[in-house]
Design a binder for these strands. Structure first.
Length: 425
RNA sequence: GGAGAGAUGGCUGAGCGGUCGAUAGCGGCGGUCUUGAAAACCGUUGAACAGCAAUGUUCCGGGGGUUCGAAUCCCUCUCUCUCCGCCA
């Protein structure tokens, strides 16, 4: 959530930057400012009333100590009207605070000044491209055919046991999953990230902390009985470890990584690009999360991009890095790079990672702060990225490495899989 | 699931319904002493909001209540611990 001071001091700039995300903030920002003024007024009135009541109470205390109970009784009557007044201002204050918060929580983060204007994925900017285009002949098959031909992934039994979007991984398919997870985690750990295994269910407060709520309510699976949400990404539990935490300057950098399964309802996205592994309700992902001082966060973002890029190079996949345009960015992000790998048999680019700097948007919600050397308190910056999401990596690996004798496993993975070829039985 | 105990400042731990934002110890910071360090001694040391400031208000797990006045009494929720039951 944006800081009130940012909105108060730079209203015009805030509106202009929101417009880059195609968000018309004129009405809501005016409301925010108006309600904040009301809130302050109520607070000031309440403070005055309470100050009066407190001083009378003290006098009563002194009178009682001196056994002057008559005078004390007289004083008590004076406070009756103050109590009512205080109650009134208290209610006002609570009301305005709630309204203000509900408004603020609906305003997206400001995009970084470098973010290009745009409405659709076509407006994203290609930053760079790497890897070689896989050479396949006309008989190349998409991964869903390969998956069934080599008995790696079984969508049908997933349909039967749960529903669409919940496949079973089988045999070498399952092993390949495990290999990728271990490979990604080991690379993150080697880069200095501390591994966490987070809970897969979180409470609503946590959902608000990272910005999924209220924006993405309805996209998360919800366990009604206990009020828990299934996590759409490990970012949610891992970043919230630091909710309501006051760090010291020397605690930085904070580098965390986590493997988790991710659950997404994907409501409203049926029909398009959903074949095979392209879009699932449950999938595996290794996430990297960082907390940083504001002055370092954009350097760190580039570092994270380099880390993800290194993974894709190791796997020998052709990839490109996009800077997302305002319209394609998430609610909470200030700057996002997406990674896509080329799927040779489907002849299209598949998103496999998203690396973002949230600046203080999440930390303001979470009260994630640090004290600098002078004891001044600041909000920390939060960043995260997928490193990497498995399903589309698996899709690209299967498709791009299909040869007449089977599917070849990239060198970097062979220590993890224990095999270098998936062949027909 | 049943029974009981508890939640206080960075940590440990006191706290009678009326100068309690809170005793004390540890830790932190500053100083004295020392060539330097340790020890000892002295001082200092929570946060949020409003205000140029003086200052005021709020915060003793969360929420509600009683009272002129609540860390202290009552209700409720959450969490932690102990015992019993169940269990991968």
């Amino acid at each position: 959530m944006l800081q009130l001071s940012t909105i108060q001091n730079n209203k015009e700039e805030v509106l202009a930057r929101l417009a880059v995300k195609n968000f018309d903030g004129t009405k809501i920002i005016d409301e925010v400012l108006a309600f904040d003024a009301e809130r302050k007024k109520a607070q000031a009135s309440l403070d005055n009333t309470l100050a009066k009541a407190n001083s009378i109470s003290k006098e009563i205390g002194q009178l009682m100590a001196q056994k002057k109970s008559d005078e004390a009784e007289a004083k008590k009557k004076e406070t009756a009207s103050l109590k009512e007044e205080a109650k009134k201002y208290e209610d006002q204050k609570t009301h305005f605070e709630k309204v203000l918060h509900d408004l603020l929580v609906r305003v997206p983060n400001l995009p970084h000044t470098s973010v290009p204007q745009g409405k659709t994925p076509e407006d994203n900017k290609v930053v760079r491209q790497g890897g070689e285009e896989p050479k396949l002949d006309g008989s190349a098959k998409p991964h869903w055919d390969l998956a069934s031909e080599y008995h790696l992934i079984n969508f049908e039994i997933g349909n039967k046991v749960t529903g669409a979007g919940f496949p079973f991984y089988v045999g070498k398919g399952a092993k390949l999953q495990r290999a990728l997870i271990s490979f990604f985690l080991d690379r993150a750990i080697a880069a200095g990230y501390v591994e966490y295994q987070p809970p897969l269910l979180v409470n609503a407060e946590t959902g608000y902390g990272t910005g999924q709520l209220p924006d993405k309510d309805g996209q998360m699976y919800f366990v009604n009985e206990d009020g828990y949400y299934l996590i759409p990404t490990a970012e949610v539990p891992v970043t919230n470890i630091y909710r309501d935490v006051m760090l010291k300057e020397e605690d930085f950098p904070v580098k965390m990584c986590a493997y988790s399964q991710c659950f997404r309802r994907e409501a409203g996205s049926y029909g398009k690009d959903v074949r095979g592994l392209n879009r699932l309700h449950q999938f595996d992902k290794v996430e990297i999360v960082r907390l940083e001082k504001p002055e370092n966060s954009y350097l760190v973002l580039e570092e994270m991009v380099a880390h993800v890029e290194g993974l894709l190079k190791s796997l020998g996949l052709q990839y490109r890095i996009l800077q997302l345009c305002g319209g394609d960015m998430s609610f909470a992000s200030a700057l996002t790079y997406d990674f896509e790998v080329y799927s040779a048999a489907q002849k299209k680019w598949l998103e496999v990672s998203s690396v973002s700097n949230f600046e203080t948007f999440q930390s303001n919600r979470m009260k994630l702060r640090y004290k600098d050397k002078n004891g001044k308190i600041h909000l920390a910056h939060t960043l995260n990225g997928s490193a990497l999401a498995l399903p589309r990596i698996v899709a690209a690996l299967l498709e791009n490495n299909q040869k007449p004798d089977g599917i070849h496993i990239p060198e970097a993975l062979r220590n993890y899989t224990g095999f270098d070829l998936i062949s027909r039985q």
